[in-house]
Amino acid sequence: MMRWFIFLLIGIPLISLMFVPIDGLFYRPEKWPKPIYNFRDNPLTFEGYTLGRTLFYDPILSKDSTISCSSCHLQFTAFAHVDHPTSHGINSRAGKRNAPGLMNLAWYPNFHWDGGVLSLNGQAINPLTHPDEMGETLEGVLVKLNRNEAYKSEFKKVFGTERITTSHLLKALAQFTVSLVSANSKYDSVMRKESSFNEQEQRGYSLFLKHCNQCHTAPLFTNFEFKANGIGPNALINDSGRRVITGKASDAYLFRIPTLRNIEYSFPYMHDGRITKLKDVIHHYANSSNWVYPISKELKLKNNSLSPEDQKDLIKFLKTLTDKEFLFNPSFGYRLK
């Protein structure tokens, strides 16, 4: 009897400790779908996440050690690139597309504005090796890391091997990026019945459900599809979007429907960052006379009868998707060594 008592006394706190999430590490919010990321292939550990976080903020990954992942993915703007329509890389070279915010990546079936990348692990190769981004080679990065004693010992702690390989580097980065979960906005607390919308937010929410939710589907605020939203091709940047990947003419100028979470902070907007203000984005959708072909049918079918008042209400609702806890979580920030 006594033995059972001691077992319970020690066992229950020990077991419950296992379920306390470590601050910053991935978790699945209540009522969210099952994540797509293969955690069995890359089991999360606090050491792996911390290593990924260190790498994310380290310019050692770029050819001339000037650019890190965080150069274009800043935490305070939901890991998007504020004030830069398109990403920029080494030697001030400009890319073709707007660096997207990084959040809830475990639920993405594919990555990039064109959906060409099918695994989060493999994604990082693109910015690492693109001449307009970090301009490095995988060989080059691995030589630098394998020369660095601090990294060697950290990688050894996580993967148990002496030599750092491509998959170690990519998996460490993914352990950090997959942990960037944003699910604690005012919207989320309203859904959990912990708070409530004010009148204007409530009106905005009804408008959202009627006009936007079909593509920007809650709780991730995207259905991950590729659509043409009527802003038309960018005359200065030759980019046919999804067609680059599929080769299908019908996919020309389609781009991913982006998430609306933290949209208040992740300006500029659209795949080429051409719109700076959220109110101008809403104005675009609300005025079919502005639309340029191609236009996906979901948009064409809308009767876009949003009055200026409606547009203001909608913006009030969109601001409830701001997750300050995510934007200012010190666990996601630069790690002092």
Binding site: N110, G116, S119, L120, I125, L142, T166, S167
Partner: peptide, 21 residues
């Protein structure tokens, strides 16, 4: 598409399309 990325599947070997997996 399984994202193994090591051994003979290591993108270092120059046989991987990163931007169109």
């Amino acid at each position: 598409t399984s994202g193994k990325l090591d051994g003979v599947f290591d993108p270092l070997l120059g046989m991987y399309w990163a931007w169109n997996t």
